[in-house]
């Protein structure tokens, strides 16, 4: 058992995150994102199984233009690597399930999957998730991004009371 490094002060972490975001804007001309990569991964996998089905769907067929050779896909690969290095060097890289005591592991995993499905749908509908839409779009003051961000907090607070057992 190694001692864990404490989490960064939230404001300093925010400054660092802002610096990464700004670097992404200025150096790459891109915002940070995540859900776009998941979508590409999903469509590419589906395309390998049922190419005709994907080709028939105009919305999905657009992904095939450059498939996984996409900025966001590589960025998310970087997120994973950065996460591994950060977690490991902080002594936090450990297999496990994060949950409150009031919920079984199976239930927690089912909730994680279900919430993920919901977010996958929502992110496509909103053209981005908390990274792409709220964080990146918010920083360039896009009106839609700010609406989206407010709604994310609204949705979270609206449901928080009902799923509170998961976290205690």
């Amino acid at each position: 058992m190694t001692t864990q490094t404490k989490f960064w002060n939230p404001y300093l972490a925010g400054l660092a995150l802002g610096a990464v975001l700004l670097a992404s804007f200025l150096v790459a001309g891109h915002g940070l994102g995540a859900s776009g990569a998941s979508y590409r991964l999903g469509v590419t996998a589906l395309d390998a199984i049922a190419p005709a089905h994907v080709a028939a769907n105009e919305y999905m067929a657009g992904v095939k233009e450059h498939g996984l050779r996409d900025w966001l896909v590589f960025e998310v690969l970087g997120v994973f690597l950065g996460g591994v290095v950060a977690a490991y060097t902080a002594g936090r890289l450990r297999p496990g399930v994060i949950k409150g005591a009031g919920v079984s592991t199976g239930r927690r995993l089912a909730f994680a999957l279900g919430g993920g499905v919901l977010m996958g749908i929502a992110a496509r509908l909103a053209r981005g998730c908390t990274s792409g839409q709220a964080l990146s779009g918010g920083a360039v003051l896009s009106a839609g991004s700010w609406i989206f961000m407010l709604m994310v907090f609204a949705g979270g607070y609206a449901l928080a009371y009902f799923v509170r057992r998961q976290w205690r």
Binding site: G115, G116, V117, L118, M119, I121, A122, A123, R124, L125, A126, R127, C129, T130, Q133, I147, F148, M149, L150, M151, V152, F153, A154, G155, G156, Y157, A158, L159
Partner: peptide
Amino acid sequence: GGFLLGMG
């Protein structure tokens, strides 16, 4: 989408 994502 925002509301749904918040719920997710």
